[in-house]
Computed example of a mutant assay.
Amino acid sequence: MFQLGKTIVSEDIIEKDFVCNLSACKGACCVDGDAGAPLDKEEAKILKEIYPKVKPFLRKEGVAIIESKGTSITTVFDELETPLINGADCAYVIFDDKKTALCGIEEAYNQGEINWKKPVSCHLYPIRVKDYSEFSAVNYDKWEICDDACTLGTELQVPVYRFVKEALIRKFGEDWYMELESVAKEKFNK
């Protein structure tokens, strides 16, 4: 691990390779697991505001859960996240004609209906950020459903941090990302 400003960063994000391979995994990260996408308070507010524009893009099951539980929920650990359909699919998940899970929020964004892409935790995946009072921990989340993404990343020689560059800049800023690139270059030039 190394420190960048007020973040503690796992070396895995510069050492491991990753490129999402939706044709192989079918978007399993959005339908597997036991929790919704982590949100911060501002994102929960944004979801509430944009929901009327996102709703037409969602499946009826997602709309039903959102309208009964809310656009976001608070967990027993007092953390915000997206609600789930039957404890599995994110309520905002939609499927394309190949049964690949996609994000209804991102689809509304791509269609020009909203100007917010999706929760940053989704945009950052496979990186997970845990905020503490003094710093944020930036870690690589290894999950076997993403093995094909690791294989593709290795074939293409794309490290995790480069794959999620846009999201890292969105979360931490351009200067932070440039420092991260410097650390990565220094590490691999040794």
Rank of each mutant, 00 (worst) to 15 (best):
P38W: 14
L39N: 06
L39Q: 00
K41D: 08
K45P: 06
I46E: 05
I46R: 08
I46V: 12
E49G: 13
Y51D: 02
K53F: 04
K53C: 08
K55A: 02
K55Q: 03
L58S: 00
K60Q: 14
K60E: 15
E61V: 03
G62S: 06
I65F: 10
E67Q: 13
K69Y: 13
S72H: 10
S72M: 06
I73D: 14
V76I: 11
D78T: 09
E79Q: 13
E81H: 04
E81N: 05
E81I: 02
T82H: 07
G87P: 06
A88E: 14
A88W: 07
C90E: 00
V93T: 13
D96L: 08
D96F: 10
K99Q: 06
T100F: 01
L102C: 08
C103F: 05
C103N: 03
C103Q: 03
G104H: 04
I105R: 14
E107H: 13
A108P: 05
Y109P: 04
Y109I: 02
N110I: 06
E113Q: 10
I114S: 07
N115H: 10
W116N: 02
W116Y: 10
P119I: 03
P119D: 08
P119R: 13
V120C: 07
S121P: 13
S121G: 04
C122H: 13
C122P: 09
H123S: 01
Y125H: 05
Y125K: 03
I127T: 00
I127P: 09
R128H: 09
R128S: 11
R128V: 12
D131I: 11
E134H: 11
F135Y: 15
N139Y: 03
N139G: 06
D141P: 08
K142C: 08
K142W: 15
W143E: 03
E144I: 07
